[in-house]
């Protein structure tokens, strides 16, 4: 394989060399043949299997990520745009996150009660629901909703800007579109998702409190004392830390898909769709890794 690539690279280099050494630059037809041969050599190196395409995509995402880290620390800092995006992603997502969080807390409590009642452990209901929501369900469900709402929005917006040449217009006016569009959105997503998750957790616990009182009578004080006693530092910190990675993944995937979209208006839909799919997948992968790391550190 290495030998094959090496031979083709050598072929391209030889063609380049011949092209430079060509005595008659005006001879366009001769050059066309040279370019054609060079293109043929390049085409031969193009990926032809799904596996090749996968690794190339991974490499491109890696380069995109590295560019983010390179640009994020370089002036100029687009503070206003970052704040604007934070507002749009965070504040504008509050109603959706609140409704979802409340329903999850309520349903989880109602569904868990019969099982715990059968075991004679109904009094553990608030503690069990709280641990479930704060450690796992709150972060993951909120991140998935965030991917659906914000990830697809970023993908569609940037793809649309690409199609209508707005990104090119930024380039020609001397603005760095990567910094203005990509860096600000990834930063905003990374910072806003943890706050949304904390908010969703609180609303979820409120929903659980309502669920507990549908078939019983639990005082507010007793409910929250049980929750606080059941939770410790090791439950809260890893759950919050992983949400930064969830937010980063959602922002990164949305921006990557939108910024690199093509195929015109069809590409806009594809960018939005694939942004949601891959961001959701990334959330589960990161969650799995985070759980493994947390377990290793706790044991």
């Amino acid at each position: 394989m290495e030998k094959r690539i090496s031979n083709k690279s050598q072929e391209i280099q030889n063609l380049n060399k011949k092209d430079v050494e060509s005595p008659n630059h005006a001879d366009a037809n001769k050059k066309d043949k040279i370019v054609e041969r060079r293109q043929t050599a390049r085409e031969a190196d193009k990926p032809d299997t799904t596996l090749d395409k996968f690794f190339i995509e991974v490499a491109l995402v890696t380069l995109f990520t590295l560019r983010f880290f390179k640009e994020v620390f370089r002036p100029r800092f687009e503070v206003n745009e970052t704040l604007k995006q934070s507002f749009l992603m965070g504040y504008a997502s509050l109603p959706l996150v609140a409704i979802t969080g409340f329903i999850i807390g309520l349903v989880l409590t109602i569904q868990t009660r019969p099982t715990l009642a059968g075991l004679g452990a109904e009094s553990w209901l608030p503690a069990m629901v709280a641990v479930s929501i704060i450690r796992e369900i709150g972060p993951v469900i909120t991140a998935l909703i965030f991917a659906g709402k914000v990830g697809s929005g970023i993908g569609a917006e940037l793809a649309s800007m690409n199609v209508t040449q707005q990104i090119d217009a930024m380039k020609v006016s001397g603005t760095n579109p990567f910094k203005f569009l990509v860096v600000t959105r990834i930063l905003a997503a990374t910072l806003m998702l943890p706050l949304l998750v904390i908010f969703a957790d609180m609303v979820g616990l409120l929903g659980s409190f309502v669920g507990c009182n549908l078939e019983g009578n639990v005082s507010t004080q007793l409910f929250f004392v049980q929750i606080i006693e059941s939770l410790d530092f090791e439950d809260l910190v890893p759950a919050v830390i992983k949400t930064f990675f969830f937010g980063f993944a959602v922002g990164l995937v949305g921006c990557y898909k939108g910024y690199n979209s093509d195929k015109g208006t069809e590409g806009v839909g594809q960018a939005a769709n694939s942004a949601v799919v891959f961001a959701s997948l990334m959330v589960f992968v990161i969650d799995m890794i985070a759980v493994q790391i947390t377990s290793m550190l706790q044991s």
């Binding site: 630059h25 050059k31 054609e36 293109q39 043929t40 085409e43």
Partner: peptide, 12 residues
């Protein structure tokens, strides 16, 4: 000169 893939748009 400028080409896109096999399609050379600007030749000389």
């Amino acid at each position: 000169r400028k080409s896109f893939g096999k399609n050379y748009v600007l030749r000389d």
